[in-house]
Amino acid sequence: MINKTVANVDEAISGVDSNMVLMFGGFGLSGIAENCINALSKKNIKNLTCISNNAGVDDFGLGLLLKKRQIKKMISSYVGENDEFERQMLSGELEVELIPQGTLAERCRAGGAGIPAFFTPAGYGTEVQGKKEVRVFNKKKYIMEHALNADFAFVKAWKGDTLGNLIYKGTARNFNPLMAMAGKITVAEVEHLVPAGELDLNQIHTPGIFVQRIFKGSFYEKRIENRTITKA
């Protein structure tokens, strides 16, 4: 059995350096690797390319790395909740590649699955098409999209075991299983870390083969971006 546990977040992010390509799981603030992001924001690294569906908010999530100007380029699908992001983008300080959400998911999945490229209808006839190859299948037009990989992928799960097997909770799953597959080094932080054999093998979402390092996060704020309730 291959033990993937590391002692703490510092050990988990060791080796992350300037100019690297990093993937971050999560949708909005849900299912983000809070502990890793906090630690990365305190590390003296810059010129990062970050692949993440969203860019956090001004003072939480990837917003922390943006504020410290550690990010050179973002690859995302929706970045609407972050003023500092919008400012850096419109002023040209930050390079941004916006891609359809389903394309982002599939590019990560493909990267982890050994599929170099694929055709999707999303973005055909729009700015997203750019100079990408267009092909017709069954009378419908598709554009070619390439796989994404990363030097490090940071994912967050609810439960994990020492072998790196992961179980996510609720909609915090989102991009995490796909990015877990696409990282050269995938770091998983979990709320509950258990010994090998304790997870129900029928319920595991990400097999440990995709995970290189796992640790129990010391603190989770789990901030809610948009609290909505039904009046009783």
Binding site: S77, Y78, V79, P100, P121, A122, G123, Y124
Partner: peptide, 14 residues
């Protein structure tokens, strides 16, 4: 204003 397309481009083509 640049918020991004999120899932809209996938939804409208399919």
């Amino acid at each position: 204003m640049v918020k991004g397309m999120g899932g809209a481009m996938d939804l409208v083509t399919s």
